[in-house]
Structure formats: C-alpha cells, structure tokens
Design a protein around this nucleic acid. Structure first.
Lengths: 209, 209
DNA sequence: AAGTTTTTATGCGATCTGGTACAAAAAAAG
DNA sequence: CTTTTTTTGTACCAGATCGCATAAAAACTT
C-alpha cells in the first residue's frame, strides 16, 4: 500500500527510457472501455486506442487482456468501497445514511461522460462470472463486503432504537444490497438518475419501516 | 400465435429439401450458448456447434448474430413471463405468492445442466444495453412488466387487508423486483440455490411486514 | 562519447470471426 | 424422369484479434 499513489518528486529516476504514460490513468482509461463494451466486447486495440499505449507496452505494463480486466475490476471495487465507506461513515440517522449510500452509488453509475454505464461489476463482470472462477470470486467477495457493511449499520440502528427490536439486520441488509443491485441494473437499462433517486428513496423508506 | 407450436402431422409438406433441424430447439440451443458466454463472447461457430447447423443455415433461419440474440432474448422473456404468470396466478396469500414467484425464478436461474447461469437478461443482456438501444428497450420493457405484476399483486393484498392501508404498492413492488434482481446476480456469482431460497424468504418476510 | 537499461514503435504470423458464393442434396411438382 | 424449389455443406474472402520478435528511441552510467 502507498507505494506510488502520490508523485514523490524526489524519487530516483529509473535507469531506462521513461514511460510515456501514467500507469494509473492508463488503467483507468482501460477500465472505461471495459465498462462500456464489456470484457469480451473489448479488444486490445480498443484499449490501445483509449490509453494511447501500443499493445507491447500494454502487455509489459499490465499483462494480457484478462490481467488488465482483473486489475480494472479490483480498482473498481476499491473505488466503490471508498465511496461507500465515506457514505456509511458520515453520521446521521439510518434513513439519511441509506440515501447517502445510494446517492454515492448513483454518482458512480452515472459517472460516464456521455453514456450511462451503471455498475462496472453488474454491467460487465457478472457476464464473465459464469466460466471464470477468478472473476467470480472477486465479485462474490465484493458483494459479501457490502452485505456486511449494511448489516453492521442495521445492527447499530437496532441498538440505537431506530429499528424495532424484532428487526432482522441480515434480512434488511439483503434488501439494502438488493436495492443497490436494482439501481445498478436499471441505470444501465436506461432509467434516469432522478427516477432512480426516487426509487432508492422509496426503498429506503420501506426498509426503515 | 399457435402456428407451429405443436406438430400438426397433417400439414402439407413444403416444396424443397426438408430442414434437418427443428427451429425452436435450435434457437433454444443457441440461447444456451449466449446464456453461458454472453453476446460478445459467443461466436457463430459456437452457435453452429451447439445447434449442429452450419453458418449459412443459421443465417437463413434466424438472420445474423444480432438477430439470433434478439430472438433468444425475446424467447427468454416469454419463458420467464409464463413462469411468473403461473406463480402469480396460483392463489394463496401474499407471502406464499412471493415465495412461489422467487422459486419460479430460481428454477430458471438454475436450469443450466452443469453450470449455474442465473438470469439470461441480467447475466448477458445488461452488458449489451450500453451501446445497443434495441436490446436496451427490450430489457427495460420486460422489467416494467414485472414491476407492474408485483404492484398489481400488492394492490390486491392491500385491498384484502394483507397489508396495512398505508402500504405503498409501488414501493413494495420495487423492492420485490430488486429481490429478484439480486437473486439473478447472486446466482451467477456463485451463491447456492439453498442460500438464495433463504434470502428470498427473508426478503419476502420483510416486504410483507 | 560509448555502453547499459528500459521503454516505445513497427510489423509479422497464426488464428478467429462474420459473412457469403456456389455446388450438391433432398424433396415435391409436372 | 425431368424440372423446380428449398436446404445443406464446403470453401473462400476480408477483416479483426492476439501475441511476439525485433528495431528504434530515450534515459542513466561510466
């Protein structure tokens, strides 16, 4: 962790020809293409065009197509977890927290410049999970993390009296995750951001009782 | 409707060489391959191998790759709607109906022989919706239908006193659809059928209040 | 200035992919 | 039996796709 996140400036230059690109931005650009056209629908030439790197440089930097995709997928989870952690950790009541979480998710789902791309995982990785155990386990682990985040928050809410004592935090967490999944799916299927915000609002209302 | 669903036997034979395949089963076999490897991940050779038809015959029967996929997609919606209609229309209380609906969905999601493929729409079409308006509208319309089915059932339940008068049928319908979406996603991501049944049970419990 | 190291850039080869042209096959019709 | 009609099966084409081999470029080292 924390090896090249910020440019140090006073770092000793490596020996050979300097890179003509920034690995982080290049990977982000590659992820953008995958996000739009999916894993199988994206060629190395597409990635090459999006990053400005030629194929041999791509390979040297990130490995083959599958490795690039896995790196992009992990990056996406990191981005999403960071956004959710912030949304979960900003205080406020249960309903407020839920709507903040869903707004954070929608911000990502609608972050594509012109097009709406939804969730990278739901929109592209789910297709690959059948037939790709590595991607499947990365996806499953991410879902598990989010389920756990929701469950912890509902336990807290029950302890704080925001939910009735009989409430089942695990059941509510599954519904909360389900709501996020339906947002992800519907965003890519063309539902507007405003409608999805209303949808999230209604769902949160029911979940909070 | 009802033109060639069942073999009539006493039908006049067409003029030329008879087909060596049954169009319906061939399309179902093609859909199976798409279901497993997605639209872009499936080649015409894959479909050719799965159906036993060669590419020219495929084209003559169903059109190009995109047309084949759209036909498979529409077929899937028909299959799913039929299953859901049956589950919705078999009487019983609200909770019973919901669990029957989710069981029907799971039966489809786990219908792949060896592998679990989840929902054809969520598992393959969602990826294509970005960049393919035709697929996007087919998907969106299907979701809308299911939302409406759920809403109608919740309205009925509220009128019958199964829900408190203040319940919002539309909000509940969105959560019910969200539950189906999360089942579809998680099935493909590797969650077992038993766990998903329990998940659906918990979700239905919360939704029914 | 010459050598070393690392990256970039071009290009080649093998395979895959989608589509189609064309001949052979299988049936009914005359 | 010949003709007509429709489907099948083989083969081919053009372009995409991926990986790699190899040369050129750009930096540091001595």
């Amino acid at each position: 962790m924390r090896s090249g996140t910020k440019k140090d400036g006073n770092e000793k230059r490596p020996r050979g020809r300097p890179r003509a690109y920034d690995p982080e931005t290049a990977l982000r650009q590659a992820a953008e293409v995958f996000w739009k056209t999916g894993y199988s629908g994206t060629s190395l030439d597409d990635i090459s065009a999006a990053t400005g790197m030629n194929r041999p440089s791509l390979r040297a930097a990130f490995g083959d197509k599958h490795e690039i995709y896995v790196k992009a997928l992990n990056d996406y989870w990191e981005l999403k977890f960071a956004a959710l952690d912030k949304a979960f950790g900003s205080g406020g009541g249960l309903f407020e927290t839920l709507t903040r979480v869903y707004d954070a998710a929608l911000s990502i789902y609608f972050s594509g410049g012109d097009q709406v791309l939804g969730c990278f995982v739901v929109g592209t990785a789910i297709t690959e999970t059948a037939g790709d155990p590595e991607i499947q386990s990365i996806v499953a682990e991410g879902f598990h993390n989010i389920d756990a985040d929701f469950e912890a928050r509902f336990k807290l809410a029950r302890a704080a009296g925001e939910l009735k004592q009989g409430a089942d935090p695990k059941a509510l967490a599954l519904l909360a995750s389900a709501t996020m999944h339906t947002l992800a799916i519907r965003a890519r299927a063309g539902t507007s951001r405003n409608e999805l915000r209303k949808l999230a609002h209604k769902a949160a209302s029911v979940i909070c009782g």
